[in-house]
Design a protein around this nucleic acid. Structure first.
Lengths: 101, 101
DNA sequence: TCGACATTTCGATAACTGTCGAATTGATGT
DNA sequence: ACATCAATTCGACAGTTATCGAAATGTCGA
């Protein structure tokens, strides 16, 4: 659960964060969610995802919580819906981190 | 053993390969193995790894098989020992792949 | 207020996987 | 041949997790 200084400074991930992200991505549906979010700039509600994935609402919710606690996505509630956004700074930091390995 | 085309051409991973790699990395000990192999250019036998990791031989063997079948490492047997090498072309392709995501 | 809808939480279950000890295979040196 | 060592395979077990249905929570419109 990283804070919010990631907008300005170049972010470095802790070993724990790196592991959490890798674990989160090691799941086909979660990777697909990230892929989808990375392609569309402004998506979306869980419903949108469920339209594309044969998955129960409870399961999707579980995966989203996992991605959120790994720090990869941000979930904001807007009325009935949950807006999901990829945290691109984190993603970038993750890639940089792996590149340094 | 990487073929000639792997050495010259830019390697593209299939979605299956990408998933296999992510799954393989989503395990602390396996990530540590990869990290270790990436640092030392020409390591090493399983024994070397076991010296640094409190892990049973059977467990290590299991993890190595996993890494190998994900395509991340190459195992060649030399006498009693197994020489482990990181397949850097694959690793590079993996990073590139994630960057394109 | 009421009913419909989106999402989360809960509890249970099935599948997966990391772990180890024991037995096995294969190589080396005596 | 034998003993020893490195590594793999096997079988079992424990912990983890993906999955779902059902119930709960929260939101909006009528």
């Amino acid at each position: 659960m990283p804070s919010e200084s990631e907008l300005t400074a170049a972010l470095t991930l802790s070993a724990t964060q790196r592991m959490a992200i890798l674990k989160a991505l090691g799941e086909p549906r979660r990777l697909e969610i990230i892929e989808r979010l990375s392609h569309t700039d402004q998506s979306s509600a869980c419903t949108d995802l469920r339209a594309c994935m044969p998955i129960a609402a409870a399961t999707l919710s579980h995966h989203l919580k996992e991605l959120e606690s790994a720090g990869l996505i941000h979930i904001t509630r807007e009325g009935k819906f949950a807006r999901l956004t990829l945290r691109r700074e984190i993603w970038q930091a993750f890639l940089t981190d792996l590149g340094r390995l």
